[in-house]
């Protein structure tokens, strides 16, 4: 009996160990396979690949800069729009709303994260894009049209639309992490501020100060999601590899370049260039996510220390 026990333990351990190992192997394989496929492109274009402004597959000219520009710009727009709203919701849920109200609201915000990307894209094409073409765009041009970013023709499809859709998609993610970090702030911090005659909002600022690195982690996590978001962006950004100031103009991101062109890339160098740019996206999101995780973890250890001290 004891014998079968140890033997059984060994088999059991081996099976679950193999499963755990498979996760590491998958990531290693992703890196290895993509790196190998990207070699022709890397050898041919070198580091200049990242700074080239032209993307002309027919002439075998591949520059990634317009896509990097589009990815960064759309993600920054998303963050600018999403951060205040996400913080606002999280503060409302943790600091203000009664529990009975906070739970269903939190759940509804989480449902936003469950809606598939392609659905956001569909909604973006047929609801948001016309809204921007008819109302939001003209409104912005009337009042802040002197800014280069709000000049030019408004088609509704372009950088701004992509940024807004991305903002909607990352808001539930940032909100949920910020909510967790705010809840982890010891209640004594709020009491200390209140006892000094702080208003509700002044107390909230103390809480935010306590949670600052966790909030940074939440934002970085949202950034990681925005950078890698594919379908919704592909559907509304216009897929045009150009670097222009106007946010109403079409643009393109790394992820949407891949989604729109990968299936047609039959030429070896074209495929290799696409995979190289995919590898860049992979490494960037990997680093962003790792960084976010470290920031969020640091909060957990800090609040534990505060509770003990």
């Amino acid at each position: 009996m004891a014998n079968t026990g140890t033997k059984g333990d060994k088999v059991f351990h081996a099976v679950v160990f193999a499963a755990a190992l498979s996760i590491i192997l998958i990531v290693a394989a992703v890196i290895a396979v993509m790196f190998q496929s990207a070699i022709p492109s890397m050898e041919r274009f070198g580091i200049g690949f990242l700074f080239g402004r032209e993307w002309k597959p027919a002439q075998e000219e591949f520059g990634a800069l317009p896509f990097i520009f589009g990815t960064v710009t759309s993600s920054v727009i998303a963050l600018i729009l999403s951060i205040p709203v996400s913080l606002g919701i999280a503060i409302f849920l943790v600091e203000q709303a009664p529990k009975k109200l906070a739970r269903p609201i939190a759940f509804m915000v989480e449902l936003l994260a469950a809606i598939p990307s392609v659905v956001y894209g569909l909604w973006g094409i047929f609801v948001l894009a016309p809204l921007i073409r008819e109302y939001i765009g003209p409104f912005l041009q009337t009042y802040v049209g002197f800014l280069p970013i709000f000049q030019g023709r408004i088609t509704g499809i372009g950088m701004l639309t992509a940024g807004i859709i991305l903002a909607l998609m990352i808001t539930p993610i940032i909100t949920s992490v910020v909510r967790d970090v705010l809840e982890a702030v010891p209640h004594t911090q709020r009491e200390a501020a209140l006892a000094l005659g702080a208003t509700k909002w002044e107390t909230t600022m103390i809480v935010l100060g306590n949670a600052s690195s966790g909030i940074a982690g939440a934002v970085v996590l949202g950034l990681g999601r925005a950078v890698g978001e594919t379908m919704a962006v592909t559907m509304v950004i216009g897929n045009s590899p150009q670097i222009v100031a106007s946010l109403f103009e079409p643009a393109n991101t790394i992820a949407s370049l891949l989604a729109a062109n990968f299936a047609e890339a039959t030429d070896e160098m074209y495929l290799s260039a696409l995979i190289e740019i995919g590898l860049v996206l992979f490494l960037v999101t990997f680093i962003i996510n790792a960084f976010a995780k470290l920031l969020i973890l640091s909060v957990a250890s800090k609040t534990n220390a505060a509770k003990q001290g």
């Binding site: 010891p186 004594t188 009491e191």
Partner: peptide
């Protein structure tokens, strides 16, 4: 004013 059981300085 109030002083609490466990010290709770702000960060």
């Amino acid at each position: 004013g109030m002083v609490f059981q466990k010290s709770n300085p702000f960060p």
